[in-house]
Design a protein around this nucleic acid. Sequence first.
DNA 1: GCCGTTTTCGGCCCGACTGTTTTCAGTCG
Length: 573
Amino acid sequence: MKNADIATVFENIADLLELKGENKFKIRAYSRAAQIISHLPEEMELMHEEGKDFQDIPGIGDAIAKKSMELITTGRLKYYEDLKSQFPDGIINLMDLPGIGPKTAYRLATELEVTSIDQLEQAIRDGRVMSLERMGEKTAANILHSIEAFRRKDRRIPLGEALPVVEEVLKALRNTPGAGNLTPAGSLRRFKETVGDIDLMGTADDPEAVVKVFTKLPQVREVLGYGSTKASVILPRGLQADLRIVEHNSFGSLLQHFTGSKEHNVALRTKMQKKGLSLSEYGITDIASGITEKFGDEESFYNRLGLQYIPPEIREDMGEIELAEQNAIPALIEISDIKGDFHAHTIGSDGMDTIEDMARAAKILGYEYLAITDHSSGRNIPADKKMDRIREQTDEIKRLNQSSLGIHLLNGVEVDIRADGSLDLPDEVLAQLDVVIAAVHSSFLQERGQMTQRIAGAIENPNVDIIAHPTCRKIGEREPVDVDMEAVFQAAAKFGKALEINAMPDRLALKDLYAYRARELGVMLVIGTDSHTVAHFDLMRFGIGVARRAWCRPQNVLNTRSLKDALDFLHRS
DNA sequence: GCCGTTTTCGGCCCGACTGTTTTCAGTCG
């Protein structure tokens, strides 16, 4: 059983215990364990095989360790099944609706025998919900609204779609006189791969004026509500955005609070409470004296707590607070560390621009090198022309490298790993190139063993340097392939091959947790934009976001190295 | 249920909003 499934069981247990009216701290313990398990960089199955003790994981004690073990070894949990049998089936589903918590769900299920969203809608429409104690017309209408939103499948949207909209909004707001510090907070600022709603923070001499401008922006589809210091609106794609404007001197605690994550903030407050400090969006209160200190920026907020500044991307309660206490937060990779890009396409395959266009664009970014890695065949290249195409590319790159472009081009390819594990180009051709990326582009539904062997086999091939987008997922579109990533990491570490963090915002694979684990195992990572036009080079920042979430320092990422050092690593110099 | 450079027992993050009531429970982030 995978961590994600184990976490779901514990989350459901927390919900069921809440229905039961159990001790809320016990409920919190299960809920917290679920969070912790879903964020573990290593599968518990594997930890079990390695003889690691689950109780060494902070937040997991004797009881939950035993239950995890039962789930891993038997695939079931008797405690959970007993608990489930005490409630009507489907009651947990009701709690998926915003506004319906355990108490309401329990009453609906027991007093109205409603246990599905469809039944609930019916019960609202025929007036039964309104007839319950402490349930009025407004509550019923609100639940109906939630049901409609739920049906519209208002899911989290990819970061890459949200961020451009947000930046447009912020740009417009910056023109308001007296407005400052306009910054996105929440999961967007932490560079999570998808975002739910959007939190925007700022300061102003006249907050009301900024709020007013915000509600009248052309991007705003609907104003949900607004007051003198905040407003909630709906942007395109059903994206909800909340703006909060405060006075300049309390911006630090506000931004810290709304950046989260929730887990980070809870851990931080728990720790500081023991030192007699109470934290909130308004500042830091000394519990004994009741005096609240305000902070204009986050750095001074963290410093007041005796902590080093913690970058937003790693605020997930994954040990960052303890490291910050020791002043030991690593210097994470920054976009300015990037010296080149190992993954780019041109009109030679399915790209939109020429090699020269791409080279000039990369040069403007200050890159030292750019690898041209068009596909081996398919995607605009007939199978019988694939050798001709490589020859043409080789000649063109040679010509450009002899001209005075000011950037070094690497002659590369993105070669398909076929369903049977063989590569789409012969070894003698691959051996003559500067860099070879291998990737799966077909037969995504292969079973685990075959897919693992397919990818691991490519890693073993001495002519392969990098595996691109190893899980092949597309966020909201295509599930990741079924592959034993641990085996892939082990192979990459053993053979000294790099794994790509694909910076395309709809891919972002390796995802953060995999990149974290790969880094831990000493695997070299590479951030590739997979650019298909010159404009795509700007997507590098999304890959940087993932790398930072994976706690990567520059030395963990190949394309922070100089051309010579990078080629040395790949044994290509 | 978890945890301990003040605790192996007695604590456990903080604030706001909403709806339905007159002091608050439930839910959310």
